[in-house]
């Protein structure tokens, strides 16, 4: 449904991160193209290759055979070259891919975590391909099989640098399937996940993801999406139904939790029925946690105590510690059973 205005809005929101990701892939494609052009053996590349690389101005003026001896670096082993060519093709497919690459739809009742993991692993083929090409340029690619290196690569195997260049994802799903815990493992590097929530959702489904370094946004329109895209670090956002809470947690806004959270809409209606297996009381608790986090220190401590009379949370020590503990507690309360 390309005409769905919410999808358009979402894709517009992640346009800059897509550009950033794709630019890195494109730059790599061109590097690999250069490597291939200069490491084919002269007999394989032939005068035609030299002629093409020199352009028409050279025709009749430059002796291609002589020039070719200057262009070619030590030719690479054909088997290794074939691997690099395969890597080149994978990177080119990703570079040429349209926005569908960055969009997934979770079927009703399916696991959000599994869908995201699957797509990221597919995109991980690009990183795997770049690793193969990188090894070739570094001279460390052996001539054995690289099949597995060119296979999908799960997010858990991405390096820190790769996570920093992670592609953004727009994920369409039913509110009932939105289990924030599913996303915890992906909240690293520069991962940006934007959820389009259909149907009913709990009032603050993303609240459990609030940690000091993660940008978290629930919104009904484009509010906050610019900051979401620009945030340097992991970020998650959801376009939620009207009756859900709308808030921004922006790590750049200060060391105190309450400075970082801005709640600009709290639901007027109390949750009245369970959504996606979460009971009414669980939903109320989720909302209260959010409201508590956004409040000034004294009140916050009080209401957190109200909402969760768990002794472990009793805030003490320096503020940053409190924040971390609070975050840890929230995570522990979140629905984590779907992580896998």
């Amino acid at each position: 449904m390309p005409s769905d205005p919410r999808i358009e809005l979402a894709l517009r929101a992640v346009a800059a991160p897509i550009d950033r990701y794709r630019s890195a892939v494109v730059t790599t494609v061109e590097e690999v193209r250069g490597y291939l052009a200069s490491h084919r053996s002269p007999t394989e590349s032939g005068d035609g290759n030299t002629a093409a690389r020199l352009g028409a101005f050279a025709a009749g003026r430059i002796d291609y055979a002589r020039f070719a001896t200057l262009l070619t670096e030590a030719p690479d082993d054909p088997e290794r070259l074939r691997k690099v060519e395969k890597a080149f093709d994978i990177l080119r497919v990703i570079a040429a891919g349209d926005e569908d690459l960055f969009k997934i739809k979770v079927k009703g009742g399916a696991r959000l975590g599994a869908a995201v993991a699957k797509r990221l692993a597919e995109m991980g083929r690009g990183f795997a391909a770049a690793r193969v090409a990188g090894m070739a340029t570094a001279g460390s690619l052996n001539s054995g099989s690289a099949e597995e290196l060119l296979a999908p690569m799960a997010f858990e195997r991405w390096s820190a640098a790769e996570r920093r260049l992670a592609p953004p994802l727009v994920v369409e799903l039913e509110g009932a399937d939105l289990h924030a815990g599913d996303l915890v493992e992906f909240m690293d590097g520069n991962v940006k996940i934007l959820l389009l929530v259909n149907g009913e959702s709990t009032p603050a489904p993303l609240a459990p993801l609030i940690t000091p370094g993660t940008f978290v946004l629930q919104t009904g329109d484009d509010t906050g999406l610019g900051r979401f895209a620009e945030h340097e670090g992991p970020a998650v956002a959801a376009l939620v139904p009207e009756d859900a809470a709308r808030f921004i947690h922006d790590p750049a806004r200060g060391a105190n939790l309450w400075d970082r959270i801005e709640i600009y809409h709290a639901p007027e209606k109390e949750p009245r029925r369970s959504v996606g297996g979460r009971s009414v009381s669980q939903q109320k608790q989720e909302l209260q946690q959010l409201l508590a986090m956004g409040k000034a220190p004294v009140e916050a401590a009080a209401s957190v105590a109200d909402a969760a009379p768990v002794t472990a949370v009793a805030p003490s020590g320096p503020v940053s510690n409190q924040v971390d503990k609070l975050a840890a507690w929230l995570l522990s309360q979140a629905d984590l059973e779907n992580i896998g």
Binding site: E30, G34, Y35, A138, G139
Partner: peptide, 19 residues
């Protein structure tokens, strides 16, 4: 009309380590 060739566009270097 010039016949364009993608090989004209390739990156000049790859950032491989120096031995």
């Amino acid at each position: 009309r010039p016949e364009l060739d993608p090989r004209w566009q390739q990156a000049p270097v790859s950032l491989s380590p120096i031995p």
